[in-house]
Design a binder for these strands. Structure first.
Lengths: 153, 153
DNA sequence: TTGTATGCAAACACTTTGCACGAAA
DNA sequence: TTTCGTGCAAAGTGTTTGCATACAA
């Protein structure tokens, strides 16, 4: 059994134990979430599942995400200007590298985050329980494109 | 001349050199931004200035913020569920500690952020230009309240 | 059989925009 | 005198909600 399959089973079990039911739509949404390393938006999820569920509703996607949020089984990256992005493969806070050109999101290794959180807790007196670490820039592909464009000029 | 006054002058100068005009409303918004260490929302700014400008419009606040954003003179912390928060006192990216109970935002010292950004750039191939570091938890006051409530139970 | 999930449409909250008027430069 | 800023109202955008029906357990 591979990691996504385990993860899917864990999510289903968690939803069930919280009294949620597993409809075909919901199962498909969960399945797609764990298999998508690209941190999809609700809209993206919806569009990708439409071929399989021709009258799927965006509301259903949002409601499923809400259930996952309530269970702590999904990480929501909020943006006020664009759609929120979701990470259900690894629902605990971790850093992200976000491409400003194409919107790609990568999950880099996170050395030293805990130490930083501890230092900030001591400096401010806050009791820190969670965090959000986003690094913005250009992904390798967009960086290459930009370099080529500059060479041409 | 104290720091907020300097900062205000710098913001005015920057807006002017970009061709913007300084109306009394705009000056008041800027003034309030540099004096507010609490990272206000557009709505908060609006409510605080209403006594001085009884027919101030929220649109004017947003338009002024937009001008500041275009000049790189304000840091916008986006939230999709709540109002965005603004920091014009220090418009370059820096960590924030955000209280989940009362919404307070503190500016802790930031040791090691650059090192982390560099490590992530190397690990992912991203060209990192900016970042957002939010730590969520309870501020000292809300932590105290919660402890007292637990003692009573 | 009971209660939750679905899908539709309407409602929401925050932010942005269009426009006519007024004011900064 | 020439823009640009203002204030109002309307439009946008992404997300949530109400409700009747369908379906999981």
């Amino acid at each position: 059994m591979d990691a996504p399959t385990d993860r899917l089973a864990a999510m289903v079990a968690r939803l069930r134990e919280r009294g949620h039911r597993i409809s075909p739509q919901r199962l498909a949404i969960l399945g797609h979430l764990v298999e998508s390393p690209d941190h999809p938006t609700a809209e993206t999820l919806y569009r990708r599942l439409l071929p399989r569920f021709p009258d799927l509703s965006l509301a259903t996607v949002y409601k499923t995400i809400a259930a996952l949020k309530a269970c702590g089984e999904i990480l929501e990256l909020q943006f006020s200007g664009q759609d929120n992005r979701y990470d259900a493969a690894c629902p605990t806070p971790h850093p992200h590298c976000i491409c400003l050109a194409c919107g790609a999101i990568a999950d880099p290794p996170a050395p030293g985050v805990q130490a930083m959180a501890k230092a900030l807790a001591e400096a401010t007196g806050y009791a820190i329980t969670s965090h959000r670490l986003d690094f913005y820039g250009l992904c390798p592909a967009c960086r290459r494109k930009r370099e080529q464009r500059q060479e041409r000029e």
